[in-house]
Amino acid sequence: MRINENTLLEGKNVLLVPYNVEHVPRYHVWMSNVELQQLTASEPLSLEQEYDMQRSWREDDDKCTFIVLDKQKWAEPAVPEEQCMLGDVNVFLTDPDDRTLAEVEVMIAEPSYRGRGLGKEVVQMMMTYAVTRLEVRKFEVKIGLDNTVSIGLFKKLGFNELSMSEVFREVTLGMNVNAAKRSLLLGNTDFMKELEYATSRDSRH
């Protein structure tokens, strides 16, 4: 989705930036990890396929993705952006007849960043962006039954169980963003700043 191709979202501990070509090699290393493949229900791709996937994320109008960066590392001019990467977050507009419904995914790929509350910050920032910029009003998330950490995260954020599949070993959680939940979400992310990506990168030097 091109709407966010020049957008940087600044949080307390993280930055969300567009998924660009220079991010692909690090992303490919992540997705070669068997544990991450299982947690994200993903199949391994070749590097060439990963570049194709990046183009799809950039160009398709039903997908929006951000790469998650370590804000503190990124502020150091000597550190390349690829070395600041710690995960990604996505929304899919899953129903062509209902553009207000989106499926959300988050991945904290670097083990050293897990268990620090970053997943919550990232998801809330992405949901705020989706609500305010993409006019999303309903969220769903599909999580493997063994991924109890992610299930717990989304339930704490107010998602409720919609269905469970023993066959696919996954649970579907959902949230309708009514006026009260929208107000709560925006209040919980009042720290977030939306900046121009290119300008922000230059300004740290």
Rank of each mutant, 00 (worst) to 15 (best):
K156I: 08
V167F: 12
R114S: 05
A109W: 02
F139Y: 11
I108R: 04
L162R: 12
G117P: 06
I108G: 03
V167I: 13
G158Q: 10
V141S: 04
F154E: 08
M127D: 08
T128K: 15
E110W: 06
R137E: 14
G115T: 06
K155A: 07
M164R: 15
M175P: 00
M164F: 02
V171E: 01
A130K: 01
S112K: 12
Y113Q: 08
R182H: 11
G117K: 07
L145I: 10
N178S: 13
I108A: 00
F139I: 10
V167T: 11
Y129F: 15
K156D: 13
M107Y: 03
S163P: 02
R133T: 09
R133H: 14
A179S: 15
R137L: 10
L145A: 09
N160P: 00
M175W: 07
V141F: 03
L145T: 11
G152R: 08
P111D: 00
S112T: 06
L134Y: 02
T172Q: 14
R182Y: 12
E161D: 05
T132S: 13
I143D: 01
R114W: 08
N176I: 14
L173W: 09
E166Q: 14
F159V: 03
K156E: 11
D146Q: 13
T148A: 11
Y129R: 05
S150I: 03
Y113G: 02
S163F: 05
D146P: 00
G158K: 08
E135R: 12
G117Q: 08
F168W: 10
R137T: 11
V122P: 02
P111Q: 07
L157W: 01
F139E: 06
V123P: 03
L145H: 06
K138A: 05
E110R: 01
Q124M: 15
R169H: 13
V136D: 06
G119L: 05
V122R: 08
M107W: 04
K155N: 02
N176C: 12
E140D: 10
N176A: 14
S112Q: 14
E170M: 12
N176P: 07
G174W: 11
L153Q: 04
N147Y: 05
M125I: 13
L162M: 12
R182L: 05
V136T: 12
L134F: 10
V177P: 00
G174Y: 10
S112W: 04
L145N: 15
V149Q: 13
F139M: 11
R133M: 11
V177N: 06
G174S: 13
G144E: 09
S165V: 06
G158I: 00
N147A: 06
Q124C: 10
Y113T: 02
I108Q: 01
R169V: 09
M127C: 15
M125Y: 02
N160E: 15
E140L: 09
Y113L: 01
M125P: 04
F168H: 10
T148N: 03
S163Y: 03
A130R: 07
D146E: 13
K156H: 12
I143P: 05
L118G: 00
K156V: 08
E110K: 00
F168T: 09
S165A: 09
V167E: 14
A130E: 04
K156R: 14
R114F: 07
S150D: 03
A179K: 12
L118V: 00
V123Y: 02
